[in-house]
């Protein structure tokens, strides 16, 4: 008899996610098959029916720090190399180029199954976390990566200035000892092009974080200044992609 482990799991996986996918006239992107909304006005839509979803999220006034709208997924086991990409449309954030870093909101995180904390440091569980922050004259994407060699022993940070309101960011996360751990990123270029930069040229030494177990893309953890100034202004994330193809998972039962 044909071993149907993969096929069956794929069919059941589709069945498990069909309810979510049917909730909008578009296809949820890649592995991001779950969604979370709290105190936001969020829409999932596509220019063409059954096209890949664009996620639009605007915070509700008075929504507080837990206001969030994002897509997410969780793997059954951590992966040590993975790519993600998405396009960010921040054009609705009026005068965002006249503000400062206090106006910030989280757009993405790829998380470890463990929390690592060097002595006295902020316990840190994200292999990569990306925030959109204001700035004058350039708003910024702030990347914070797990880095055992960084100041504080848990993470380090870099800022990418943005000169336009529509930007595509692609990242590649590699987990390993010493120089085997690094993050590469591409701003407004393809994965086929040379990376715009490498985070941790000397190595992030991020092996203690094991690998990426889960990821989310959307809007969350808005700062008070962002909430005060930009509630009601939508951030749109589309062209969401990932190398993490989970369609053929054999352990579909972890999709709870």
């Amino acid at each position: 008899m044909m071993d149907c482990t993969r096929w069956c799991s794929g069919i059941l996986w589709l069945a498990a996610t069909a309810t979510v996918a049917d909730a909008q006239d578009c296809v949820l992107p890649g592995p991001f098959q779950r969604q979370f909304q709290n105190n936001v006005t969020a829409t999932l839509s596509a220019a063409n029916a059954e096209g890949p979803c664009a996620l639009s999220v605007a915070l509700k006034a008075g929504g507080g720090p837990l206001a969030a709208g994002f897509l997410h997924y969780r793997r059954s086991s951590p992966t040590t190399s993975v790519r993600y990409g998405f396009r960010i449309d921040s054009s609705a954030l009026a005068n965002f180029n006249l503000t400062n870093l206090l106006r910030n909101v989280q757009l993405f995180s790829a998380s470890s199954p463990v929390v690592v904390g060097a002595d006295g440091s902020l316990p840190w569980s994200h292999l990569l976390l990306i925030q959109l922050a204001g700035g004058n004259p350039s708003p910024k994407l702030v990347l914070t990566a797990a880095n055992a060699l960084g100041v504080g022993g848990v993470a380090s940070q870099l800022s990418i200035p943005l000169t336009q309101a529509l930007n595509t960011l692609r990242v590649e996360i590699n987990v390993g000892v010493g120089s085997a751990g690094f993050v590469r990123y591409w701003l407004n270029t393809s994965f086929n092009d040379p990376p715009t930069g490498t985070f941790g040229n000397g190595g992030l030494d991020n092996a203690a974080w094991i690998g990426v177990i889960a990821a989310e893309v959307g809007v969350s953890s808005p700062s008070i200044s962002f909430r005060n100034d930009y509630s009601g202004s939508a951030i749109v994330l589309d062209q969401i992609e990932s190398s993490d193809d989970l369609l053929l998972w054999s352990d579909f039962e972890t999709l709870q």
Binding site: P65, L129, V154, A155, Q157
Partner: peptide, 8 residues
């Protein structure tokens, strides 16, 4: 930000 802390 309540429930979230980021290193800067």
């Amino acid at each position: 930000v309540a429930f979230a802390a980021y290193p800067t």
